[in-house]
Write a protein that binds this DNA or RNA. Structure first.
Length: 657
RNA sequence: GCCCGAGUAGCUCAGUCGGCAGAGCGAUUCAUUCGUAAUGAAUAGGUCCGGGGUUCGAUUCCCCGCUCGGGCUCCA
């Protein structure tokens, strides 16, 4: 007899040898049908696993995240089975579930690659495997035997060797391998069909027949173990869902997200374009885009003034000497544009503003009374991004940082960090972002300067700031800049995507390299610390993120055109001009759409341009001094007095921020 | 930089198994004067990304390059 506890607190007794599947069946037919895996005392198990007496057991269906995860993981196995069956000599690496789907990495003989036609063929074979309803059979074998089983598969052998050498700690150290093997001398495998076995931690769905609502999406190159020094594998991405309806809904969401693409919206709304003549990652700003950008920058400036920043300007170029002293030529050279040689000196376009701000600090003697000194610049920087990384406004080779450098005494750093983080979040909220996720990045393993105790001190200061702000954060071990640890703030946009925007970095390196000091209260010379802080991150990128966040419908205070006045017929043109004039005097950005086209068409055009207020004026309005108001949200209204129209738009224009 | 894919009118995209280049939207002109998401007609608009090759003939096939998209790496 086996006794298990169910999530509702009840207990259930089953015959000896009962499996999770037995349990599901005893609870109900429907659960037995929908069950994917089970969780026993917190550990995921196959349905075929015998239950342990006294365990707390939960049956998992594909309705839960955990169940879907399993479904995707199992689908990845079927993908691998199909590929290995169709392409003799192919080998496989890892194939984990990821958000909304899964991937699997392969290597084809002779460095061959997959094409889109291959994907169709592979999907076809996958459907055959699924139709055959092959059971997933788990087997645990020792590492030596596993090396024989996977004799033809070097990447699998590498995984087995790594996990058996590293023991149980490997699961933490190699998160990407965690779905493959648990560590230790015994590894688990899952076989399905006669000829397919994969190294895998499991668990899996009971049989391939449980799968089916999947789509193979694309093929991409991916470096083995994410390392650009290792071979590039062929990665196939797919998505998988519990039902055909879920799959369809997901594909629909992807299509909707594509409609928000800032590159598409920028063209449709006449904001920004990327002339091929200029080169990759280089945009031109049209009048409406430039206006929105101007409004963003103006708002940023006014907030910075309030917060005690001082504004500076620095040139786009500086001599090699500066970048040698700063360490950029040692640690950052591959991202820098090549120098221009002039008068026997090499001038580099700046990839960062910091060394130039240091020059301002160093221009005079500093006292502790001057600190913290907060310098701010909208500084254009140029970075040589890899051509494959460039992406519209979100990743470009020339961009403008809203960059500030705070020079502070070591004592001031903790409180300065805390107030900086508050300031950053407050400004982000003003632009309509509500959800934040922070990341605390520590010392990089390879390229880093400065002693460990300084890194520890600075990292703790950042951690304290996060905790005092009450912000959720994750650790990114080794993700820091070469000169110090950092906090990056991600915002979540209207459709749930995360964007990295703000960054807060402690720097003990530049003050050292440039030999900065200040006179302390006791008259001694001390070394200040620097804090690097970008809020938008990049003005261009922030604009792109805002554009996608709002799907082009900027809040009224940022909308390039806030009101469009539409005379019903030519007779009302003078009145329309009068209304527009009144609004403009009041500070509302207003256009008039003349009556050559039918009214409905002009309304549609204004709506497509996401104008917040469409104002329709006809004979009744001329007589009464009113306008029809068709706001972006809500139903059209008639006969609103002009003074009310103006007041409403003005109120809306300040409400958002 | 690496892997896969794409580049045809201002935009979105058809098309040509190698033989005079197509649509819708947009633009322009004319007519229409209309009360809330597409009025009608006409006209203009193309180095089919660039360069080379194969061919009687290349937008189409081949090679090289450029740009863009999706990934990897990197990152604001």
């Amino acid at each position: 007899m086996v006794r298990v506890l169910l999530p509702d607190g009840s207990a259930r007794e089953l015959a000896d040898g009962a499996t999770a599947a037995t349990l599901a069946a005893s609870v109900g037919r429907r659960l037995a049908r929908d069950a994917v895996i089970a969780v026993s005392d917190g550990v995921e198990i196959d349905l075929s696993t015998p239950l342990t007496d006294g365990a707390g057991v939960e049956i998992v269906t594909a309705a839960s995240e955990r169940g879907l995860h399993t479904l995707r993981h199992s689908t990845a196995h079927v993908l691998a089975q199909a590929v290995l069956g169709l392409y003799p000599g192919a080998t496989f690496a890892i194939g984990p579930p990821v958000a909304d789907g899964f991937y699997y990495d392969f290597e084809l003989p002779g460095g061959a690659t997959f094409s889109d036609e291959d994907l169709e063929r592979i999907a076809e074979r996958m459907r055959e495997i699924i139709a055959a309803d092959q059971p997933f059979v788990r087997r645990e074998i020792d590492a030596t035997e596993a090396l024989e089983v996977f004799a033809e598969h070097p990447y699998k052998r590498e995984i087995i060797e790594r996990v058996s050498a590293a023991g149980d700690e490997s699961a933490d150290a190699d998160a990407d391998l965690a779905t493959e093997a648990p560590g230790g001398d015994v590894v688990s495998c899952y076989a399905n069909g006669d000829d397919f076995v994969d190294l895998c931690l499991g668990p899996h769905v009971p049989s391939t027949g449980r799968l089916g609502h999947f789509a193979l999406q694309r093929v991409a190159g991916a470096y083995w173990r994410g390392d650009s020094d290792r071979p590039m594998l062929q990665r196939i991405y797919g998505t998988a869902w519990a039902s055909a309806a879920d799959l369809k809904a997901h594909l629909h969401r992807l299509a909707e997200a594509a409609k928000r693409d800032h590159r598409r919206l920028a063209r449709q709304l006449d904001l920004v374009s990327w002339p091929e003549e200029l080169g990759p990652g280089l945009a031109v700003w049209h009048p409406k885009g430039a206006l929105v950008r101007h409004l963003m920058e103006d708002y940023s400036r006014s907030r910075h003034v309030e917060a005690g920043y001082e504004f500076v300007y620095t040139p786009h170029l500086a001599k090699a000497n500066l970048w040698e002293t700063s360490g950029h030529l040692d640690f950052y050279a591959e991202s820098m544009y090549p120098p221009m040689e002039l008068d026997g000196a090499a001038y580099y376009p700046k990839p960062m503003n910091c060394p130039l701000h240091v020059m301002i600090y160093r221009s005079s003697q500093r006292s502790y009374r001057d600190l913290p000194l907060r310098l701010f610049e909208l500084g254009a920087v140029y970075r040589y991004e890899l051509s494959g990384a460039v992406h519209g406004l979100l990743r470009s080779r020339g961009f403008t940082q809203d960059d500030s450098h705070i020079f502070a005494t070591p004592d001031q750093v903790p409180s300065e960090l805390a107030s900086l983080l508050d300031f950053v979040l407050s400004v982000l909220r003003a632009f309509g972002f509500e959800n934040f996720q922070a990341k605390l990045s520590t010392k990089p393993a390879r390229k880093a300067v400065g002693p460990d105790d300084m890194w520890d001190l600075a990292t703790e200061g950042l951690r304290a700031a996060l905790e005092s702000a009450g912000l959720d954060y994750v650790m990114d071990v080794g993700g820091g800049a070469f000169y110090g640890p950092k906090i990056d703030v991600d915002v979540t946009d209207a459709i749930g995507r995360a964007w990295q925007l703000s960054t807060l970095q402690v720097d003990f390196n530049l003050p050292e390299r440039f030999d900065l000091h200040y006179t302390a209260a006791d008259g001694r010379r001390r070394r200040p610390l620097m804090i690097h802080r970008a809020l938008f991150g990049s003005v261009e990128r922030f604009f792109g993120v805002l554009l996608e966040h709002y799907a082009g419908a900027f809040p009224t205070w940022l909308a390039p055109v806030q009101a469009s006045v539409l005379p019903v017929a030519a007779d009302h043109a003078d009145y329309a001009a009068h209304v527009a004039g009144e609004l403009r005097v009041a500070g509302v950005r207003t256009e008039v759409a003349a009556s050559d086209e039918p009214l409905g068409r002009r309304v549609r055009a204004a709506k497509l341009q996401k104008v917040p207020y469409v104002l329709v004026v006809g004979a009744a309005d001329v007589a009464a001094g009113t306008a029809g108001v068709n706001a972006r949200t809500g139903d059209p209204e008639r006969g609103v007095p002009l003074a009310d129209v103006r007041a409403r738009i003005l109120a809306d224009a300040v409400a958002g921020r």
